[in-house]
């Protein structure tokens, strides 16, 4: 499995919001186990999608100097299920944090306008160059934004 839970970043307003998409495919490895003969996108994978979208938000807002690591979930509600074939539209926005060293966000995921996840979560920023090749990550961001020029 490629642990990449965002397929497309559709919108970024630095300081405000990032929006993206995760398409749930029957070929996802996790659907074999979650659940046997009853494939449902795991709620935790929706939370990971929001976490990764937050990473892209912080990277794109910092000229790819920072990435986000989750350390706390204040609350995450899971509504109904996301099934294979569903397109989950995701968005993350920063919210207030009492501790200035901690970043807080609210994330939402919907399928056809119906709520699937709403999560308030927190974490810290880590220098991107400590965990990823920065140029490679920039290029992948362009792929997700569909900004790569055809050669």
């Amino acid at each position: 499995m490629r642990y990449l839970l965002i397929d497309h970043i559709t919108e970024l307003e630095p300081g405000k919001v990032i929006r993206g998409v995760k398409n749930v495919a029957m070929s996802e490895d996790f659907l074999e186990f979650h659940f046997p003969r009853n494939p449902i996108m795991p709620g935790v994978m929706l939370l990971e999608a929001l976490t990764q979208l937050t990473g892209w938000y912080e990277a794109a807002s910092s000229d790819f100097k920072s990435w986000f690591l989750i350390s706390r979930v204040r609350k995450s509600n899971f509504y109904g299920f996301a099934f294979p074939g569903d397109q989950v539209e995701l968005e993350v926005e920063p919210i207030e944090s009492e501790d200035p060293s901690v970043r807080a966000y609210r994330g939402r995921g919907t399928v056809n306008g119906k709520k699937k996840i709403v999560a308030d979560f927190e974490g810290t920023l880590i220098p991107l160059d400590e965990i990823e090749d920065v140029q490679g990550q920039k290029r992948f961001y362009q792929v997700l934004r569909r900004e790569l020029k055809q050669r």
Partner: peptide, 20 residues
């Protein structure tokens, strides 16, 4: 498997995996 892309310069267990 998830460590292949989380991350390429450092292998860190994703926080949500503990929740799972």
């Amino acid at each position: 498997e998830f460590l292949r892309s989380h991350f390429r310069k450092q292998a860190l267990v994703p926080g949500v995996i503990y929740i799972e």
